[in-house]
Write a protein that binds this DNA or RNA. Structure first.
Lengths: 201, 201
DNA sequence: ACCTGAACACCGTTCAAGT
DNA sequence: ACCTGAACACCGTTCAAGT
């Protein structure tokens, strides 16, 4: 027993993160276990606790990386469109991302912190950055609107797209199939934005 | 050991169901365990398996009852309104229901069948009945619309309301707080239906 | 017929002991 | 300094044995 030093501290950390990510994409949250991660990386379970505080800490780190990847995908959506079209393209990019990482994405909803543990501030920031992208386009679309109105619209759209992808991913409320997701998202955005801009009241 | 017959078979079944429901509302899915249920009802773990096939079977039964309760709540929404207003009232009833049973409701998304197990047909039927209520009002609202268009609109609304409640319940994507949910749902329905009816293209 | 409780194959996490 | 592996307190599920 004792030191092996086959991997540096950073290599080991990365090995744990990639192996865990693979494990989740393979088996879902249900198949996730500290002992299984240890088996996959060829270390004892105890080693994980030298690198991460606990499994929550490890999973939260993976979730943060996932949010970063999503942010990159959304920022990559070309700017040279009208706001309405760009919002649709952002939504499509979101859809593609969740489609490519379904189990990892589900992690964000299904994994809860153990009682007492708080969600770190950097996590909240990442989320708000994602919403900011939507808010920017909405401001372009309805220039006269108040901040509150834009914020509300961004959350409604975000939640709506989330709801559609969520229902198409979850088995239990699957009145929506995966194939339906894209047209439903288009329908939501077209009609919601239509109602937003064609306002008479 | 051996027979006790303090409870009849039906009493025991009901005892398990109510205790498990309470346990879930207390501790969430994470705190759910066969051994903890057994402790709470004062029977050995093995007894659970005389009544239910396994924990999945038990949980699915609870979920079915939950869907029945929701169906009752939605059907209880008064009919004497215009479709637009009735849809808003149905959504509000939905919101109230999820607010009153947050952890149980989350069960529907967070609890997955073990690999290989299928979701029973009665479960799907309950879901479709809920959607049918929304489809009926939409048909009244846009009488000329095709079946496909109504179905699509019903799913978009359903998913949208689900997304809002889901985000307000989940800790991990909580850019939406619980207080926000009702106004966001109103906003969604008003603008989406506005876009649906004010169609020019 | 009904219920138990030991048994089996698992968990997350800690920490003394080894190199 | 780094890593192990036994230990502790848990799991879900099965099934022979008891009344």
């Amino acid at each position: 027993m004792g030191r092996r030093s086959i991997h540096t501290a950073e290599e080991l950390r990365e090995l744990i993160l990639t192996s865990t990510t693979e494990l989740i994409e393979d088996e879902g949250l249900a198949g996730l276990s500290a002992r299984e991660i240890a088996r996959r990386i060829g270390y004892s379970p105890g080693t994980l606790y030298n690198v991460f505080e606990n499994i929550d800490d490890l999973v939260l780190t993976i979730e943060g990386r996932l949010l970063d990847q999503l942010a990159l995908s959304l920022h990559a959506v070309p700017e040279d469109e009208c706001p309405h079209q760009r919002l649709k393209n952002i939504a499509k990019a979101y859809l593609r991302f969740t489609h490519d990482n379904p189990r990892l994405w589900n992690l964000l909803f299904e994994h809860h912190m153990q009682t007492g543990a708080e969600i770190p501030p950097w996590y909240q920031e990442k989320l708000e950055n994602l919403l900011a992208e939507v808010e920017r386009e909405l401001t372009r679309l309805i220039p006269g609107a108040s901040d509150a109105r834009v914020k509300r619209a961004a959350r409604v759209l975000w939640a709506g797209v989330h709801g559609i992808t969520s229902l198409s991913t979850t088995d239990k409320l699957a009145t929506v199939t995966t194939d339906d997701a894209a047209p439903l998202v288009e329908d939501l955005i077209d009609h919601y934005l239509g109602g937003l801009t064609n306002k008479k009241s």
